[in-house]
Design a protein around this nucleic acid. Structure first.
Lengths: 343, 343
DNA sequence: CATTCCTATGATGGGCGCACGGCACTTCGG
DNA sequence: CCGAAGTGCCGTGCGCCCATCATAGGAATG
C-alpha cells in the first residue's frame, strides 16, 4: 500500500487517520490510492498498537440453559437495540457474550468495556473484568459488593407502589401478584415492595410464583392465582407474557376484564394495545436504559468525566388501558358498561 | 509473565495453548502462575498473529432509520439468539453491525466472516466483504448477482400456497393479503406467490400494502382491508403484528373470527396462543435458520468441507389454531369436513 | 570407556501491521 | 549563511505464534 502510493507507511497512516501535518494534496493522493486498492487498515494491528478495540461486550445473565433470558426478552431486545444504536453513533460495536460463556471465548475478544444486564450477586465475570481494569456498567443496580463502574436502573419499588395505588383507585379490594422464583433484583425488589404494601394497607398477600424462564409455567401460575379461594379482584404480573396468560385464565373462569378483574402487566410489547380488552402495561423504558448505559460506559472508556451521574434511575411509564379501569374512559358519549374499542 | 514463571515466552504460549511438547509438570506450573497473576493472553496480539479473531459479524438490513428491522423483530431476535448459541458452542462470538453502519466501524473490527440477514440486491457491504476474501452467509436467498458463500432460507412460495390452500379448505371464498411496500425477498416472493395463486384459482387479488417498519401503518392497513367493498372472508398477514391488528379491526367491524373471517399471520410470538380466539400462525423457524447459518459460516471460515449443502431450505411450520378453522376443533368425536387440529 | 547420535525440553528470533516519537531533508526569508 | 518552518520518513515496539535452533542427558555403538 505504502509502496503503491509512493510514500512511507507513516504517511499512509497519518493520511488515513488525519493525524500528522501533511499537505492536503498528499492526504488526498494517499486516500485515492487506498480507495483504488480497496485497502483497509488492519483492525487487529491497530488494536494491538493502541490498546483500543472499539468493542463493547453485552452480557446477559442467564436462567436455565438458554443463552438469553426468555422472560425479559422483549425488554432485552429493545434495550440491546438502543444500546447498539448508541454505541454505533460513537464508533463502537457490540459483542454478544452470554455470562455462561466459557472463559476462552471471553479472553479471545479484546473488549474496551462491558455492559452487564442484571448481574447476579457474586458475578465472577464482572469481578474478572474489573480486575483487568475494564469499565463495567450494569443494567440493574448491583447487589452485594459488586464493583461496577456505574449503573442504570428503574425504581422498581416506586413502580410497583404506583401500580398498586392505581389499581386501588380503580376499585380493587384484593390485589394479587404474579411473580418469579428467581432471585434477580427486579423480581426481589418488586415482590418485596408488594409485600410491604400489603402490610401497610393490611391486606393478605395473594401471589403465585413460577420460574420466569418457563413460558408454560407462567400460564399455569396465572391459572392457579385465579383458582384460589381468596381470588384477587386485580392482578399485577411482573413478566411480559403474564398479560395474555391472565386474560386467558380469566376467560376460563368466566371473569370479565375489567369488570370482575383488573389487570396490569409489565411489558414492552405493543400487542397489549390490541388485546381484548386492551391491557394496561408498565414500561421499563428499555430504550432509555440501553442508551444511558452505553453513554456511561463509553464516557468511562474514553476517560470523559461526563457530568452524568454514575447511578441513574430511569422513570417507568404506566400505559393505562381498559384492563385496569373499572369505569371505561369515554371519549364521546357511549352506552354504559360497553367496553369501547381502541380508537 | 514469562519471567514470573521462570520460563520463556514460547513455553508460556505452548503451555497455555496445549501446543508444544512440554512435560506436564512445566505445563501445570505455567498455568498456576498464570492463574495466580490473573494473566490473560492478549486477544489483539493473537488476532494479529494468527489472522483469526473468533468474531462473526451479524448484519441486519434496515428500513428507515432504526438499526434493526422492526417488523421482523421477533423473528430476528429468535434467529440471533440461536445464532449466538451456535457460534458460542464453536468458540466464536457475534458482533452486531447494522448495514447502515459507517465504514469506519466496519473496518475497525476484525471479522472472520459475516452473517447477513436479508441482503438487498446490490448490497455494498456484502460485495466489500467478499472482495476482502471473507466468507458471507446470508439468511434469505440472495437476489441478483450477490456473491454470498452460502445461504439459508425458507420456501416462502410453498408456505404461502400452503396457507392459501389451508384457508380454502376451511371454506374461504375470497382470501385477502396484508403485505408490505418494501422490496425485500420475503415480501416480494410471498406477494408474487399470492398473486399467482389468485390467477390460478381465478380470484381477484384483495390486498393492502403498507411500510412494514411502521407498526401504526399496519393497523391502518388492516382496517383498510376489512373496510373494502370486496371484503375478504379470510386474510393472511405477512408480518408479526398483523394478527392482533386484524383481530382488532375485525372487532371494530363486528366480524366474528373465525365464523365471519378466517385469519392467519406469520409470527414467532407465543401471544397468538392466547388471543381471542387463538390465532393460526406460520413459523419461519428462526432458530433452525440461525443455527444453520452459523454452521455454514464457521465451516467456511475453518475451511471445513462440510457435507452440508451451501444452499439450504428450511421448512416452515403452520401452527393451526382456532382463527383459521370454521368448525372449532373437537378433541373427541369430530364431524366430517373439519380440518384437524395440530396434535 | 569414548564417541556418536538421538530425544526430550525449552529458548531464540522473526515478523504479523500499525501508530507514534523523533529525526532528516527541503525550502525559504532574513 | 543560518535558522525556522514545512514535510515526510525511520525506527521501535505492541504481545503473540511458529519455525528453527540449542542444550543436556541418555542410549547405542565401536
Amino acid at each position: 500500500m505504502a509502496a503503491a502510493a509512493g510514500v512511507s507507511i507513516t504517511t499512509v497512516s497519518d493520511a488515513l487517520n488525519g493525524k500528522g501535518r501533511l499537505p492536503d494534496a498528499t492526504r488526498r493522493h494517499v486516500r485515492e490510492v487506498a480507495e483504488r486498492l480497496g485497502y483497509r487498515p488492519s483492525a487487529a494491528a491497530r488494536t494491538l498498537r493502541t490498546g483500543k478495540s472499539g468493542l463493547i461486550g453485552l452480557t446477559v445473565t442467564t436462567y436455565g440453559d438458554e443463552p438469553f433470558t426468555f422472560t425479559e426478552f422483549a425488554y432485552f431486545a429493545e434495550m440491546a437495540r438502543a444500546a447498539t444504536s448508541a454505541a454505533l453513533a460513537r464508533g463502537y460495536a457490540l459483542v454478544i457474550l452470554p455470562a455462561t460463556s466459557r472463559h476462552d471465548v471471553w479472553s479471545n475478544v479484546a473488549l474496551d468495556g462491558t455492559v452487564v444486564i442484571d448481574p447476579s450477586d457474586q458475578d465472577p465475570v464482572v469481578s474478572e473484568l474489573v480486575r483487568q481494569g475494564l469499565p463495567v456498567v450494569s443494567d440493574g443496580r448491583p447487589v452485594g459488593q459488586l464493583p461496577v463502574t456505574a449503573w442504570v436502573d428503574n425504581d422498581h419499588e416506586a413502580a410497583v407502589l404506583g401500580i398498586l395505588d392505581h389499581l386501588s383507585a380503580a376499585g380493587a379490594r384484593r390485589i394479587g401478584l404474579l411473580t418469579g422464583t428467581t432471585t434477580d433484583t427486579y423480581t426481589r425488589l418488586s415482590t418485596e415492595a408488594y409485600l410491604r404494601w400489603c402490610r401497610h394497607v393490611d391486606q393478605d398477600p395473594v401471589y403465585e410464583t413460577y420460574p420466569a424462564h418457563d413460558p408454560c409455567a407462567g400460564a399455569v401460575a396465572a391459572d392457579r392465582l385465579l383458582a384460589r379461594p381468596d381470588r384477587p379482584d386485580a392482578v399485577y404480573g411482573l413478566f411480559d407474557p403474564n398479560g395474555t396468560d391472565l386474560l386467558a385464565a380469566a376467560r376460563r373462569y368466566g371473569l370479565r376484564v375489567p369488570d370482575d378483574l383488573l389487570l396490569v402487566c409489565c411489558s414492552e410489547s405493543t400487542v397489549y394495545a390490541n388485546t381484548e380488552p386492551p391491557m394496561t402495561t408498565l414500561s421499563l423504558k428499555p430504550r432509555r436504559i440501553g442508551t444511558a448505559v452505553i453513554q456511561l460506559l463509553i464516557d468511562a472508556i474514553e476517560g470523559i468525566d461526563g457530568d452524568r451521574p454514575v447511578e441513574q434511575v430511569i422513570p417507568t411509564e404506566l400505559i393505562v388501558r381498559t384492563s385496569s379501569q373499572r369505569r371505561p374512559p369515554r371519549t364521546t358519549v357511549s352506552p354504559p358498561r360497553t367496553p369501547n374499542d381502541t380508537t
